[in-house]
């Protein structure tokens, strides 16, 4: 089972120097009817598609019966470099992924990822979520499964087919270096928090001093954001505002959004006289849509009507010094490879 087969890696754009688990014997769909995809994206992106043909096609068939990725997810696949025809390989990997050392943890998390959504608690989405996570944990065993991935995968599934979701995830891990966040000791998390720290000290020095004074470290509020690219914070049908821009601009966009949020909260945070109050404004503790609405409402400045779409857009307009960020990024990586 463990031997990696000689499937042409280039076919799906895999990196040559990374350890992959690849299934030894391809299993045909005929022998394994259970492997047929059941999942259909639940978003309504296609209904708003500019392409008339697609729009008509969608209006003729209820969304629930189309298993292809929506127009948005297809765009992400293009941007992220997911090649077409990768479904067969996904099915092969899936057929070898029924059990992994992460099965138990995945099982523990699967129905409490989106507890308010029937689709992920009892519907087909539950199976799809489990299959993508299991396949991934088997495919890249060094990363495996880490809590937080469940939100990301669920959000991708909302828009994309099962196979596309899998390959988008693989691409996010590799090309967007998301894997650094999840591997042992979380070097990526450390790096991003370090960069966020730097940005705060530069752009919001008062806030930086305030955090320092009350012993608040960036990991305390930014871990969820880093691990899930904000998908744990946004309602699932709004996540694409952020995710789409992340696919386009990568971590630069992520930092911009963090700064946008902190900027809007600055006054409120400076008024907090202990760590508990600061955290309460950065990390409101309720779940679901309500929590998200409340969070974004709190970010509105003087009478402004703010929603996630606007916020995501405004963040993109921010200007930050990308050269410095890429320097910090490189430094952190060199330190990591040097084993420091």
């Amino acid at each position: 089972m463990e031997a990696a087969s000689t499937i042409e890696l280039t076919r799906v754009g895999l990196l040559p120097n990374v350890q992959y688990f690849l299934p030894p014997d391809p299993i045909s769909e005929e022998t394994n009817p259970l492997l047929l995809p059941l999942h259909c994206p639940q978003c309504s992106c296609n209904r708003k598609a500019k392409n008339l043909l697609k729009r008509t096609y969608t209006s003729l068939f209820p969304r629930k019966e189309i298993s292809d990725s929506c127009v948005r997810a297809q765009k992400w696949c293009q941007t992220a470099g997911v090649s077409e025809n990768s479904e067969a390989l996904y099915i092969e990997i899936l057929s070898n992924s029924i059990e992994s050392e992460y099965s138990e943890q995945i099982e523990r998390d699967i129905d409490r990822s989106f507890p308010d959504l029937y689709y992920f608690t009892l519907g087909e989405g539950k199976i799809a979520l489990k299959r993508v996570l299991s396949s991934f944990s088997r495919f890249l065993p060094n990363i495996g499964y880490v809590q937080g991935m469940n939100y990301l995968v669920g959000t991708l599934l909302w828009h994309a087919s099962e196979a596309d979701t899998f390959w988008l995830l693989v691409n996010l891990m590799q090309n967007y270096k998301l894997y650094e966040n999840y591997i042992e000791n979380f070097p990526g998390l450390e790096k991003h928090c370090h960069i966020i720290d730097f940005l705060i000290s530069n752009y919001q020095p008062k806030l930086y001093q305030h955090f320092l004074q009350y012993g608040l470290i960036t990991q305390m509020y930014a871990t969820d954001w880093c691990f899930t690219i904000f998908t744990c914070l946004l309602p699932i049908n709004y996540s694409y505002f952020v995710l789409g821009k992340f696919f386009k601009s990568g971590w630069i966009y992520f930092y911009k959004l963090v700064l946008e949020i902190l900027d809007r909260l600055e006054e409120q945070i400076l008024g907090c006289d202990n760590i508990a109050k600061i955290l309460a404004s950065l990390k409101p503790y309720t779940t679901g849509k309500k929590h998200s609405k409340k969070f974004v409402k709190n970010l509105a400045k003087g009478g402004e009507r703010l929603n996630w779409k606007k916020l995501a857009k405004q963040a993109q307009l921010r200007e930050i010094d990308e050269n410095v960020i890429s320097c910090l990024d490189r430094n952190a990586e060199n330190l990591h490879t040097a084993g420091l």
Binding site: R108, D109, D111, R112, S113, P115, D116, T121, Q147, G148, N150, Y151, Q219, M220, T223, D224, F227, T228, C232, T287
Partner: peptide
């Protein structure tokens, strides 16, 4: 249906 916790 409590959500799973990431970090803390």
């Amino acid at each position: 249906k409590e959500q799973s916790t990431t970090n803390a």
